[in-house]
Design a protein around this nucleic acid. Sequence first.
DNA 1: CTCCCTTTGAAGTAA
DNA 2: TTACTTCAAAGGGAG
Length: 231
Amino acid sequence: MHPLTSLLPYSNDHFSPSPPHLPTDMSQKTGVHRHQSQDLSGYYSLPPGGVGQITPSMSWFPHSLMLGPSGVHPTGIPHPAIVPPSGKQEHDQYDRGMYMKPQVEVKREKEPKKPVIKKPLNAFMLYMKEMRAKVIAECTLKESAAINQILGRRWHALTREEQAKYYELARKERQLHMQLYPTWSARDNYGKKKRRKREKQQDSNTDPGSPKKCRARFGLNQQTDWCGPCR
DNA sequence: CTCCCTTTGAAGTAA
DNA sequence: TTACTTCAAAGGGAG
């Protein structure tokens, strides 16, 4: 289970700050302020003097300062978005506990290199995290690309209420992320991944592009052009 | 080793 | 504004 999401009391909608029928997320841009997110302290029972006091200048912080000896954030929330900057940061974070690796204590002399703070997961990503194992078990597939296609279909097959759960969860992830790293921006990770191809995703006629774009272009219903044992 | 693939959604950039 | 791009996860496959 996602160490962060496991903290989120989304088991029910009793808190439901917004109607559950939509991915209502307008609040994040319009209402919520980066330093004073009203409702979060209640959700995560942040100690007074916890993240609420994070100053913009502390947007990134050496683990030695902000994380306890066990790598736990002062709030007690082991946020998984922090990933050691060294080596590959893509396939070894979150549930492997690697984000807790005390990379500063290993090589502390050198400049403490900013820890990589990853993007918060969106609703679909959270859904994938939760359902991936189940799909793999059902389908005997292993390749993530194939699994993700199935998950994409299943995502669309969900009811609005079912999706709303993940939208709500994602909203909280973003809010928590915002509290923990007030000055973080998605821009920070731009260009961190090296891409081999892509270049120019041009020509809309000969190259249909991704299924998503293709469906959008032709107005296809995603349900229709799928078949196979894994539905 | 590292990147690609593949999905959706959030957020960034460029026009 | 609008359109396009990048990155979040994941793990087998490819280079």
